[in-house]
Amino acid sequence: MATLMLTKYVNNNNFYAPPPVAGSSRPSARFAGTPIIGAKSRRGGSAVYLVSFLLTFDFDAFAEDALETGGRAALVVAVAFVGVRLLQGLLSPLIRVAVREQMAAEPEIEIEKRIDTLSHVIYRTAVVVVAVVVTVTLLPEFGVNAGPMIAGLGLAGLAVGFGAQNLVRDVINGVFILVENQYAKNDVVSIGGISGLVEDINLRRTVLRDLDGTVHFIPHSQIGTTSNLTKGYSRVNFNVRVAYDSDVDKVFAVIDRVGKELAEDPAYAASIKDPPHALRVDGFTDTAIEVKVLGETLPLEQWTVMGEMRRRLKKAFDEEGIVIPYPYKTPGGDARVVVRPQPAED
């Protein structure tokens, strides 16, 4: 910055080096119109002219110019910083009010995810815009003409635009994703065969983290079909297999009882909207009857509830004598299915 200010000050004040007095190696006291930079390049006595320049340089004027330029720059940065902070303070309440009116019938967790996503994207976009405006505003303060640069960037952007069509599609698709509220931060989604938690989203790309901890960056132009596993509510949905000689009505009663007990458990009650229950006989396989178990939970809670439901069902089936068939292989390699546990031999 100091170099730019010094150059600007020298150019604006047209400093000239004094030519030497006839018959003397010392410079004259008057300025004769020879630029000091030209004198350095044309003559061997550059040190003399540099000393003369330093002796005649108006450091007070330079300091005043530097303080004035630095003050304006600091003022622009300060105003931008305060503006961004005010914008951040205003955005969240405004978005919160608008989203709550639009999603009044939705669960609270969905409303919070929507508010978080919109606030995050809009704030980051605004910061980028403010940074560009501040840069363009400060360039003239340091002697850089921003007009030709902006025009050049426009032409360069036009040329780059032909090769950046995917970027344009990324942004357009990102706008539709946000406007249509297809998914938000902290949703679990499946995009192009990749499933994971939405850790971040902006206008250009979505960031997913899968169960292995792997982070996937997905450009919005590559998104075709998106499946949101946690929008509004989530569902407990799995099949239980029981032996063919089981009493189906008893199986249904045990499943319903276990689901009701789970929904009444204080540790899980807040997460369950509809207790898991036996829906129907879902099919017959070669070795078992399949019973469909269905229920509803808050978003993201279905896996926890399903795991606990399976654990309790196994204990309840063991207590009630309901058998879950399982395959095994004999020492000869033949596949068989255990339907009833055999008593241990004495």
Rank of each mutant, 00 (worst) to 15 (best):
residue 10 V to G: 02
residue 11 N to K: 07
residue 13 N to F: 02
residue 17 A to F: 04
residue 19 P to M: 11
residue 30 R to L: 11
residue 34 T to V: 03
residue 39 A to V: 07
residue 40 K to W: 14
residue 40 K to P: 00
residue 48 V to I: 15
residue 52 S to C: 06
residue 56 T to M: 11
residue 56 T to N: 12
residue 58 D to S: 10
residue 59 F to A: 09
residue 63 A to K: 09
residue 65 D to C: 03
residue 70 G to A: 07
residue 73 A to Y: 03
residue 76 V to I: 14
residue 77 V to S: 09
residue 80 A to N: 07
residue 85 R to D: 01
residue 88 Q to V: 12
residue 89 G to M: 13
residue 91 L to R: 01
residue 95 I to D: 03
residue 100 R to W: 00
residue 101 E to Q: 13
residue 112 E to V: 11
residue 114 R to N: 14
residue 116 D to Q: 07
residue 125 T to Q: 10
residue 127 V to D: 05
residue 131 A to N: 12
residue 135 T to F: 14
residue 135 T to G: 15
residue 136 V to D: 05
residue 142 F to G: 13
residue 145 N to Y: 06
residue 153 L to E: 12
residue 160 V to F: 15
residue 164 A to N: 14
residue 164 A to Q: 15
residue 166 N to H: 12
residue 167 L to S: 15
residue 168 V to D: 08
residue 178 L to K: 01
residue 185 K to Y: 01
residue 187 D to N: 06
residue 194 I to K: 12
residue 196 G to S: 04
residue 197 L to E: 15
residue 197 L to T: 15
residue 197 L to I: 12
residue 198 V to H: 05
residue 199 E to P: 01
residue 200 D to G: 02
residue 201 I to Y: 01
residue 201 I to A: 02
residue 201 I to L: 08
residue 201 I to F: 08
residue 202 N to F: 09
residue 206 T to F: 08
residue 209 R to M: 12
residue 210 D to G: 03
residue 215 V to T: 15
residue 215 V to E: 13
residue 216 H to D: 04
residue 219 P to W: 04
residue 222 Q to K: 07
residue 224 G to Q: 02
residue 226 T to K: 02
residue 226 T to I: 13
residue 227 S to C: 00
residue 233 Y to I: 04
residue 233 Y to R: 08
residue 242 V to G: 01
residue 245 D to L: 04
residue 246 S to D: 05
residue 248 V to A: 04
residue 249 D to Q: 14
residue 250 K to Q: 15
residue 252 F to E: 05
residue 260 K to N: 07
residue 265 D to S: 14
residue 278 A to R: 07
residue 280 R to L: 13
residue 288 A to M: 05
residue 289 I to A: 02
residue 290 E to L: 06
residue 299 P to E: 01
residue 299 P to D: 04
residue 303 W to S: 06
residue 305 V to A: 03
residue 305 V to T: 09
residue 308 E to C: 10
residue 312 R to K: 07
residue 313 L to M: 09
residue 316 A to M: 06
residue 320 E to N: 04
residue 324 I to H: 01
residue 326 Y to F: 13
residue 327 P to I: 00
residue 330 T to A: 03
residue 330 T to Q: 02
residue 334 D to R: 14
residue 336 R to A: 04
residue 337 V to F: 01
residue 339 V to F: 14
residue 340 R to A: 09
residue 346 D to K: 15
